[in-house]
């Protein structure tokens, strides 16, 4: 892939400062996103997946958040140094968001139609009638029956799955180039999850935007992503094409993660593998490999130095001294 990346992030760090502690949530993260690709981001809770994406678009309240980066470029613009107005013009227009909990992500006192029409009227300057027509199209697209009538309904009249469809319609309203989906299926039933995934897959073919899909569900990633980033304690520890990652995971953490997934179809193993210990919370900038305390293969160097990501195969890189 030698195309120009749509989004390029170099050395992004985010820390949260409170009165008596500093938490380094994201540490020197590098990644790129190409047009039209689906990038999966996996990691356990607190690994910095969401914070990374929120930081890019100025959605973290500051204070307490402090963000620094070598460069964050989206389509030629430096996101972090943009004035608030210009950043807002990108948010919701060229980059759409879907959040984790559809039950609380919609405003309870505004109609679904108003909320979908809002970004279109704001960013594209559509009239009420135009926005309404487009909103009906969008609700149709995401599979909400009787779209024209349901526009006048409030969110509490929709089920969780339907609300997530509304959120997707809302995120797609202005034809974004990037869709950031932050664990969009975590709060939903498994059957609804499958429907939403199917919907996103078909939308991707129809609309052709790039997707950053944040999740801790490896199964979802396997069926959707082109490329996967694995995050641990605010760092990207491994990055590979989806096939490579599932067949030839390299980082001990990724392997452990894959080993802890129950195998529904296959032979029942005796026990599920668990990763021992607690996920690291960094109160100081990392001085060692963040995984060393839980790693079976750790050597002395792992405790003294932060491993850099290096290539270990075609489009596959890993941050580990042992590879």
């Amino acid at each position: 892939m030698n195309r120009e990346p749509l989004l390029e992030v170099r050395d992004l760090s985010v820390s949260f400062h409170s009165r008596d502690a500093v938490v380094h949530a994201v540490n020197r993260v590098n990644f790129v996103l190409h047009p039209g690709e689906v990038l999966g981001v996996v990691g356990e809770s607190g690994s910095g997946k969401t914070v990374t994406m929120m930081a890019l678009l100025g959605l973290l309240p500051s204070p307490p958040a402090r963000i620094s980066a070598e460069a964050v470029r989206f389509d030629g613009q430096k996101l972090l140094s943009l004035p608030p107005d210009r950043l807002r013009a990108i948010r919701g227009h060229r980059i759409g968001f879907i959040f984790q909990d559809p039950m609380t992500s919609l405003n309870p006192v505004l109609t679904v139609g108003y909320q979908i029409m809002e970004p279109m009227r704001h960013h594209l300057g559509l009239t009420r009638v135009q926005a309404r027509d487009r909103a009906v199209e969008l609700l149709d697209l995401v599979g909400i029956p009787d779209a024209a009538r349901r526009l006048n309904d409030w969110p509490h009249r929709f089920s969780g799955g339907m609300r997530q469809r509304v959120m997707i319609a809302l995120a797609l309203a202005c034809d974004p180039q990037v869709l950031v989906a932050d664990e969009p299926t975590t709060a939903l039933d498994v059957t609804i999850q499958a429907q939403i995934l199917e919907l996103v897959r078909s939308l991707r073919e129809k609309v052709g935007m790039a997707i950053i899909w944040i999740t801790h569900d490896l199964g979802v990633i396997a069926g959707l992503a082109d490329r996967v980033m694995v995050m641990y304690a605010g760092q990207i520890v491994e990055q590979a094409g989806v096939g490579t990652l599932f067949e030839a995971a390299s980082h001990p953490y990724t392997r452990a993660l894959l080993g802890s997934v129950p195998d529904a179809g296959g032979v029942r193993r005796d026990r599920l593998m668990a990763i021992t210990g607690q996920a690291a919370v960094l109160y100081r900038p990392p001085e060692a490999c963040p995984f060393h305390s839980r790693c079976d293969e750790a050597v002395a160097r792992c405790r003294e130095e932060v491993p850099k990501r290096h290539s270990c195969g075609e489009e596959h890189d890993v941050a580990c001294f042992r590879r």
């Binding site: 959040f99 992500s105 309870p108 505004l110 809002e118 704001h122």
Partner: peptide
């Protein structure tokens, strides 16, 4: 609350986020 984050993610002006949402 989450819906406020959604409103911000839409790229709305802070004034609208607070006074409308």
């Amino acid at each position: 609350l989450d819906y406020v984050r959604t409103a911000r993610a839409k790229g709305l002006h802070e004034r609208i986020v607070v006074l409308v949402h």
